[in-house]
């Protein structure tokens, strides 16, 4: 039998309130206008019902004053709705600096998630309560969209680039994770669960999960295996520029432009080294397209990030004393 009828979704993240507030505000204005106009139409239809075939009502051409009124008032109301949405949208766009980072790779038809500590999950995402979490996401094939209704948030995951989104869960529980962008046959099977857990439970879960090396360690291993270290040395003595202290800094390019060394730039430089050449260096680096997976790329980028001092200070807080048998409220 079907479950009980629900009319309003659960809310489990700090961002949800802003979205709901916009929703309810527009709902109130809409109901006011819908009811008002419908009543007017109904009233006119009944009040001015045709009494006789000979009826010839007087024509009314119009009224500039009325036209202005019902143009300007809806316009002003619409602008308040725009501003309300823009404020929340902008906040949603800026992840707090102390966010915990996680990495998502979509593929037909699953979500692969890596925690910085090296824990991996498929179609499940465990996050601690009251900590901002930033997701860096990409896909191996078509466009997907990472959607958590209880957090009121979604973002398309586009091949060839990184998308980011962040949230701060504020209610323990298990919530839906959906793919919202049609991605082929098993689109509706590309679903999973988000588990919001108390900090201690989360740490317990982390320590209880099978874990090999951290993302940084895996990235370092890849970095050496692919031979990156032969050219990118700790100082500028190599054939390529050094990667120490690079992340987040501006890079001067050969063409005189300058870019910030973010995840997208690092990704492009590995896959298409000739796209942006650092000033003072020749195009010698081969492309690594096809030699490194999306997950591997995220690991290498994690490693490169760890080479800069600023990243180390913002690293996630070390695990509090893990209690392996702690209650696992969020489910596991």
């Amino acid at each position: 039998m079907p479950k009980d009828l629900q009319l309003f979704p659960d809310s489990a993240a700090t961002g949800a309130a802003g979205v709901d507030a916009n929703y309810l505000y527009i709902l109130a204005v809409s109901v006011f206008f819908a009811v008002g106009i419908s009543l007017a139409i109904l009233y006119f239809a009944l009040r001015y019902k045709r009494k006789s075939e000979a009826d010839v009502p007087k024509p009314i051409h119009g009224s500039i004053a009325l036209e202005l009124t019902w143009t300007i008032i809806p316009f002003l109301l619409a602008m308040t709705m725009f501003v309300g949405g823009a404020v929340v949208f902008f906040r949603n766009y800026q992840a707090p600096a102390n966010s915990m980072e996680m990495f998502v790779v979509g593929k037909q038809w699953m979500w692969k998630i890596q925690h910085p500590s090296g824990v991996r999950e498929i179609n499940e995402l465990h996050v601690p309560l009251n900590r901002p979490v930033k997701l860096t996401m990409t896909t191996e094939d078509v466009i997907h969209s990472f959607y958590i209704p209880a957090f009121r948030i979604k973002k398309d995951v586009v091949p060839g680039q990184y998308s980011t989104m962040w949230f701060e869960a504020n209610k323990v529980g298990k919530y839906h994770l959906f793919c919202a962008e049609y991605c082929g046959t098993q689109h509706s099977g590309m679903i999973g669960s988000v588990y919001v857990m108390e900090e201690a439970d989360y740490e317990a879960w982390l320590s209880g999960s099978v874990r090999g090396e951290t993302m940084q360690q895996a990235g370092e291993r890849l970095f050496n295996r692919l031979g990156c270290a032969t050219c990118h040395k700790a100082d500028n003595s190599g054939r390529g520029p050094t990667l120490v202290d690079l992340f987040g800094k501006p890079v001067k390019l050969q063409n005189g432009m300058s870019v910030i060394a973010d995840e997208g730039y690092l990704r492009e430089s590995v896959l298409k080294p000739s796209a942006k050449i650092v000033s003072g260096y020749a195009i010698e680096m081969p492309t690594f397209q096809g030699q490194i997976s999306e997950e591997g790329l995220l690991q290498v980028i994690s490693y490169i990030k760890s080479l800069s001092k600023s990243a180390q200070t913002a690293a996630p807080a070390p695990a509090a004393a893990p209690a392996p048998d702690a209650a696992k409220k969020g489910g596991n």
């Binding site: 802003g18 979205v19 916009n22 929703y23 527009i26 709902l27 204005v29 809409s30 619409a78 709705m81 725009f82 309300g84 949405g85 823009a86 404020v87 929340v88 949208f89 949603n92 209704p149 009121r152 948030i153 979604k154």
Partner: peptide
Amino acid sequence: LFCANVAVDLH
């Protein structure tokens, strides 16, 4: 109007 609103549209 709900769809035009960038915040509501996120959801």
